[in-house]
């Protein structure tokens, strides 16, 4: 499984991007996007921002407060998008590209034992097909977002950092934090 994690400002500027692969079940943490997929990713992420907005202001809101974790919101070809939206309208988007086998495209099920926690467990229930709405997957992604959020709050508290001006996150410490959360949960 390969992931692309991107933070979007309220004005849709990407502030931070990190690509990584799964570290679960013997994964090496290296993303396996093809060149075409890699260049397509920013477009997929940007286009799903529309869906985020729809879900955000959608009718599912309960008594005027909406959950920040919007779960799986969009799918384009073989890429699945999960979203976390902060109260300040900063969007965390996680693009998941499962391996072909996990989608039932390749050799079909041969690699189920090597699947990550966020997806591999789907094999227990409904075959070997990756499912973004699987509770284990949702929980893993949520835990990842919560960890990132904590690091994000610390970034935002910096008086010299202004999200509104589209300040890009340059801190290598923030990146290692994201990588650590990715390694831990995805």
């Amino acid at each position: 499984m390969s992931y692309n994690f991107t933070i979007f400002s309220p004005t849709d500027t990407p502030l931070f991007t990190h690509e990584f692969g799964t570290s679960r079940s013997g994964g090496d943490g290296i993303p396996r996007f093809t060149t075409a997929e890699r260049s397509l990713n920013p477009f997929i992420l940007h286009s799903s921002l529309d869906i985020v907005e729809e879900v955000q202001w959608g009718p599912s809101t309960t008594s005027g407060n909406a959950p920040m974790y919007l779960k799986h919101i969009d799918k384009y070809q073989n890429s699945y998008i999960s979203c976390w939206i902060t109260a300040a309208n900063v969007r965390f988007l996680l693009l998941t590209r499962p391996r072909d086998e996990a989608l039932g495209l390749g050799s079909g099920g041969a690699g189920s034992q090597r699947g990550s926690l966020a997806g591999g467990r789907a094999g227990l229930g409904g075959g070997n097909v990756y499912s973004p709405t699987n509770p284990a997957t949702e929980e893993a992604v949520k835990n990842f977002f919560v960890d990132v959020y904590e690091a994000w709050v610390k970034t935002v508290m910096n008086p010299f950092f202004d999200v509104g001006k589209g300040d890009v996150v340059r801190s290598p410490v923030f990146r290692t934090r994201v990588a650590a959360a990715a390694k831990k949960y995805l």
């Binding site: 407060n65 939206i85 904590e150």
Partner: peptide
């Protein structure tokens, strides 16, 4: 509104 502060579900006002 961070998860560290509100231990319940993370909610944002809409």
């Amino acid at each position: 509104t961070s998860p560290a502060r509100c231990h319940t579900a993370c909610l944002g006002p809409t």
